[in-house]
Computed example of a mutant assay.
Amino acid sequence: MDMHSPSTAAGDARHVAGQQGAHAEFLTFRLGAEEYGIDILRVQEIRSYEEPTRIANAPHFIKGVVNLRGVIVPVVDLRIKLGCEKVEYNGFTVVIVLNVRGRVVGAVVDSVSDVLELASELIKPAPEMNTSMDTSFITGIASVGERMLILMDIEALMSSPDMGLMDSSSQNLQ
């Protein structure tokens, strides 16, 4: 029994996924006008946005740190990191708390949409782009009804060298 009340598109995706073989669940969220999806297994919790404590000399996309039940969690604003034109903090702004390579990291997004189960047949490869921007964390594109989802490998993004959040010794840090 499904605990969510999915939209029609989400219901269609679940129905299709149930009939076909391999499928995966994605948490969908908005960054500006785009909708993204990440592996639900990386998500620890979703929290309302609270102003983090700023860390001196941190990159502009790292908003600071918050204390999450005794764990100091770095908070990355994905809207800034991924170049959204407008970054606005309001009642819909949330932090997705992620567990990436044994480390807890917060990701600020405009809003969370829902959880979708997508059949592998619905996921198309990400287009090749000749650009200086790193798009290696984009794993595919899924069309669900009228929605276009950009699927990302949040672990690859958060552990990329330019984030400065992970290194070989960060496996055991909490």
Rank of each mutant, 00 (worst) to 15 (best):
V112C: 04
P161D: 13
R101H: 13
S7D: 00
A10E: 03
S5I: 13
H60A: 15
N172Y: 13
L149A: 02
G18Y: 08
N67W: 05
A13G: 06
A17R: 01
L116M: 12
R103L: 12
R42E: 05
Q174W: 11
V109N: 04
S159C: 11
S7H: 02
L173D: 03
I72M: 08
Q20T: 14
E25P: 01
P6D: 00
V16I: 15
L157W: 07
T131F: 07
H23T: 09
N130T: 12
Q171A: 15
S5M: 14
R47V: 13
K124A: 12
Q44I: 04
F61W: 12
L165Q: 03
V108T: 06
A24I: 08
E121W: 02
F26K: 02
V73D: 00
I154W: 01
F92P: 00
D162R: 14
V65K: 09
A13N: 02
P127W: 05
D2I: 14
P6W: 06
I96N: 05
V66Y: 10
G37M: 02
G102W: 09
F29A: 02
I150N: 04
Q20N: 12
Q20D: 09
V144H: 00
E35I: 14
I40F: 09
R69V: 06
N130D: 13
H23R: 10
T131A: 11
H23F: 13
F137W: 06
